[in-house]
Amino acid sequence: MEVSFLINGVSQRVDVDADTPLLWVIRDILDLKGTKFGCGKAACGACTIHIDGEAVRACAYAVKFAEGKSITTIEGLSVGDKLHPVQQAWMEEVVPQCGYCQPGFMMATAALLEKIPQPTDQDIDDNIVNVCRCATYYRMRKAIHRAAAIKQETR
């Protein structure tokens, strides 16, 4: 079926099987490789994107539901050379190790900060449940707080 949506501000129309996971449309057809495949079961969060501003795991989201929606991926988080506060904070705290899960974490964090601009440690624990095998959680927590502060400063 044909599905149209806005992705990182660009309208796209794809013609694929209606149940194709949105993740593969994003990665294989639209060639945006920042959204990662980790498990395909909505368990690891490596494919977290925003759909109409909400954090969604793209591997468990059939493309047909994307009709008319506005999608943001890690490639759309920064604007030109200007990094999103979450990305800035991730740079400042030198969070990534292997880096594979990091786009998903940054997308989940960006969604969190839209809902809770100054999250507590408890908020972070409750909302950020992606999986990082390099276990960069210690720096991520610092970076999430830092991102909240950057967002506040630049407001």
């Binding site: 920042g34 990662k36 490639e75 740079m91």
Partner: peptide
């Protein structure tokens, strides 16, 4: 800072996958 930091923060296509 890590030399691969910016690529990894941007989600650049650098992995086997």
């Amino acid at each position: 800072p890590r030399v691969d930091l910016r690529d990894k923060v941007l989600g650049a296509p650098i992995f086997g996958m």
